[in-house]
Design a protein around this nucleic acid. Structure first.
Lengths: 232, 232
DNA sequence: GAGTGGTCTAGACCACTTC
DNA sequence: AAGTGGTCTAGACCACTCC
């Protein structure tokens, strides 16, 4: 009886390319099947490496995708946790004011993230100057405490960026949304200004990737700030 | 008393974290200052490594960001090339039909990429079934050659995904855009179907990251196919 | 077959959080 | 100080393109 002796642990020859993609799907399945529920902590990276027999590069690539998806959240020095986006429905609390405002914010994320990316690639120097002016005006208003004017100044900043994206449809929709925007009141202005600056500098240096990331961060933070206020 | 024994070849004078981000900005500056112009080939990764004194990980991270930004394009086995998004203006060819259609496609990219990501997180099983039906109907139409119906069937597929995103604003805008959509004619149907399948499977398994990527790929490819047709 | 990008591994050191 | 994620290095092998 001749058994072909293979010293390998097993004929596990899966030259599978894209181990990260596979890991993503396996973790998503654990979330889908309730093995992992919102709030749960994922195993530490070293454990995931051993469990799936892959290197840390693969684990981190998978976790980064799950972060970008909004499925999990990673906290430096603590761990990675499952978020509660799926499962509790399309935030069907009720058709009230809060829910409507959040939906508007979600719409703006889709539009303005793309707008910021295009503006970084296409803005003229003249348009950049106008955006800078709007930003300075907004900061001046905040310093003087004329909060009532801040809403329209904030909108103007976003609208000027839309006009720098070189696509009039974006401008049209933004203008139609003007009356639906959440009024700014007692919001942590320093955070907003810092986020605006991040968006501006990315557009200034033509960094589309950073512009998109900065705009997304700004709008998701705005959503969180609004929800925090609404719950009070 | 513990002596930290670390073999240091030399005094590393740059403990700089985020080398990739720095590399991105340096390459963007070369594009901005016309040292690199659209169509130019970047040095191969090994050369960039040596030139900047960083590992390949850093180089590849930087190039991936520049790809995501639309600043460069990488071709497997060939090289990385500078794209011409910046500098030649907001595609100010003229206000003709072609330009308008492209702007609509850009708007759809912003909206539908976000829609696909949300749909992957929120879709119900019932909604998934409806999307599957629309996809099958579309394939049947393509097989039978009833190209005239394909446009509305295609729109229906996209609309059903929007309805699965749990935000009625997205649905409203999509419906308003229905009449503005580019009619499908003599387009490479097999590619479109394959791209639709990619979007569907990502939404099916709740992979928001993949859903976004698949939708973006589908719509940018649609734009390229349209432009190719328009130039004929 | 040579050249170039794509994926993966193993390990080192840094930064943040908690005890 | 211990634990965990963040960044970076060096090197191996695979996949695609072109000659």
């Amino acid at each position: 009886m001749t058994t072909i002796s293979v010293d390998e642990p097993h004929r596990e020859q899966k030259p599978q390319r894209n181990l990260a993609q596979k890991l993503v799907q396996e973790i998503l399945q654990k979330i889908e099947s309730k093995v992992l529920v919102p709030g749960d902590k994922l195993p530490k990276e070293a454990d995931i490496m051993q469990e799936h027999g892959v290197s840390r590069t693969v684990v981190r690539e998978a976790l980064q995708r799950l972060q970008a998806s909004g499925n999990v959240e990673t906290k430096h020095g603590i761990g990675t946790f499952v978020l509660n986006n799926k499962g509790q429905g399309p935030m069907d609390l009720s058709f009230d004011y809060v829910n409507d405002a959040v939906e508007i914010l979600e719409l703006r994320i889709g539009l303005e993230v793309e707008i910021a990316g295009l503006a970084a690639l296409r803005r003229t120097d003249e348009q950049l100057v106008e955006i800078r002016k709007a930003l300075d005006a907004l900061r001046a208003i905040d310093r003087n405490g004329h909060v009532s004017d801040a809403g329209s100044a904030d909108f103007n900043f976003h609208l000027l960026i839309a006009k720098s994206a070189g696509n009039h449809y974006f401008v049209d929709i933004m203008q139609h949304m003007e009356n639906s925007l959440v009024p700014r009141k007692r919001i942590d202005v320093s955070h907003v200004n810092h986020e605006h600056e991040e968006v501006y500098t990315a557009i200034e240096r033509g960094d589309s990737y950073a512009a998109r990331a900065a705009m997304r961060l700004h709008l998701t933070n705005s959503r969180e700030r609004f929800l925090k206020l609404a719950r009070q």
